[in-house]
Design a binder for these strands. Structure first.
Length: 219
DNA sequence: CATTTGATGTTCT
DNA sequence: GAACATCAAATGC
């Protein structure tokens, strides 16, 4: 047994495997929390778009059955396995890109999925890229939608988030009272783990299923 | 408004 | 062959 496997305490979920709670697994949750309020920026030949991150999900690594790292290192997941501070962009359902920020050391395989951004700059460009968006919030209120709106594509996977085509900048923090936590969306494995973070009442977050228990980050 | 269904094709078993 | 970290249109109230 390695040090990592020796969880001091386990927050036990109602069903299934307990949520890993080692110091290092918790680090990815903290990044997911801290990314709320940060600015995501993407530069392409068409222009620059910026948005405030309002919804994230933590994917913890090989011990998280919903994380791509659970299947081991493959061609698709090479950038998920580090180093941290880079993009992991993958194709879902053969059609849509999803953007992640890698959080853990090389070889581990943990990341934070960005699921919603509130547009700041380049809104007209976003509209041109999202002709199907009828309401304003449909521009960027989902992981596939925000990649379409901002021009994030698989070729950007592996790039630095400090000086690559996609940049994340710290900005005005979101206070705990405005942070909500729910289970992750659209997964079947470890579906009850509370690893989705969102800004309360922001119109650019995806819909929370009615069945989800919803609580404030601040107890 | 909410819920269901079809599109679409890569990845992994 | 099945699963998939989704989206948009269609259908039901």
């Amino acid at each position: 047994m390695t040090t990592r496997d020796a969880a001091p305490t386990a927050r036990r979920s109602r069903l299934g495997t307990p949520l890993p709670t080692t110091f290092y697994d918790r680090a990815t949750e903290l990044v997911a929390r801290e990314l709320l309020g940060a600015v995501l920026e993407c530069s392409t030949p068409d222009g620059v778009t910026r948005g405030r991150i309002v919804e994230t999900e933590a994917y913890l690594g090989p011990d998280d059955p919903a994380c791509h790292a659970a299947a081991g290192l493959t061609a698709r997941t090479q950038h998920l396995f580090g180093p941290p501070g880079r993009a992991y962009v993958y194709l879902i359902y053969g059609m849509y890109w999803c953007f992640n920020a890698v959080t853990r050391e090389r070889g581990h395989g943990a990341a934070v999925l960005v699921r919603g951004v509130h547009p700041i700059d380049g809104v007209e460009l976003m509209r041109r890229r999202r002709p199907n968006a009828r309401r304003e919030r449909d521009l960027t209120n989902g992981p596939g939608k925000l990649c379409l709106a901002m021009g994030i594509v698989g070729a950007m996977s592996g790039a630095s988030l400090r000086n690559g085509p996609v940049v994340i900048r710290a900005a005005e923090p979101v206070p705990d009272v405005d942070v909500e936590v729910t289970p992750r969306i659209g997964i079947t494995q470890a579906a009850e783990w509370p690893l989705r973070y969102l800004v309360r009442d922001d119109p650019f977050v995806s819909a929370t299923p009615k069945a989800f228990f919803r609580r404030s980050y601040e107890r």
